[in-house]
Amino acid sequence: MRNVVNGVLRRDLRIDTRTPQVVPGMALFSISAFVVFHFALQQRSVSGNLAAGVLWVTLLLAAVLGIARQFVADREEGGFEGFLLAPVDRTALLVAKATSLFLFLIALEIVAVPAFLIMLLGPSPQEFWRLLLALALADLGIAFVGTLVGALAVQSRARDLLVPLLALPLLIPLLIGAVKISAPVFGGPVAAARWPWVLALYDLVFGLVAYAVFDFLLED
């Protein structure tokens, strides 16, 4: 199983480093979104809850872009069928895909978060660990939900339409938690201490759901 995970993961990462598509696309999108927010909100800088909202909406939409592209390369190049024919554990594909999405999201955030701090944030960030905690928990959840949604939508004709329609409502609880945890970083109010636990519960539940149902998406 570990070999399979390693193999798929390495191939995914190699595709994106050789002909970069997904991560640069998501990063560019996030910076464009910050520019759009600047003009749409008519503000030089944002702070507090508004800042948390702008950052997380941008990250969420960029993540949806990444989710939509996730299985496309496999399908176009026939890698999907190859994997289905190989007598390997389907869970390995889930783990590999979720890990690669997780890594892509981290790569996105390495660009997007500093860009946000420089371009839009008014007050200097405090208690930065809260943002890191929120990012880690949210990325994990997005990785599971995104892999599930990407696999659900990849076989359908209306893939580009279905991914955001499915992913956005599913990710709303995650967005609520992430905004609540990270708002104090930008000068917002401190939320209740149980929010990280809610996010952890979300990650756990969707991790289990993805594990339980992923096999059925790959049967042929």
């Binding site: 599930l148 076989q155 359908s156 599913l170 709303i172 609880p173 979300y202 759901v209």
Partner: peptide, 30 residues
């Protein structure tokens, strides 16, 4: 948007299960 009958049913069921798990979590968070 899914042509194949068998696949359509399977994917729809996966969706129904995922969404069913989502309902209580969503209520908790909101």
């Amino acid at each position: 948007s899914i042509e194949d009958r068998d696949k359509q049913g399977r994917y729809a069921s996966v969706f129904a299960i995922t969404a069913g798990a989502f309902v209580p979590l969503n209520f908790l968070a909101v």
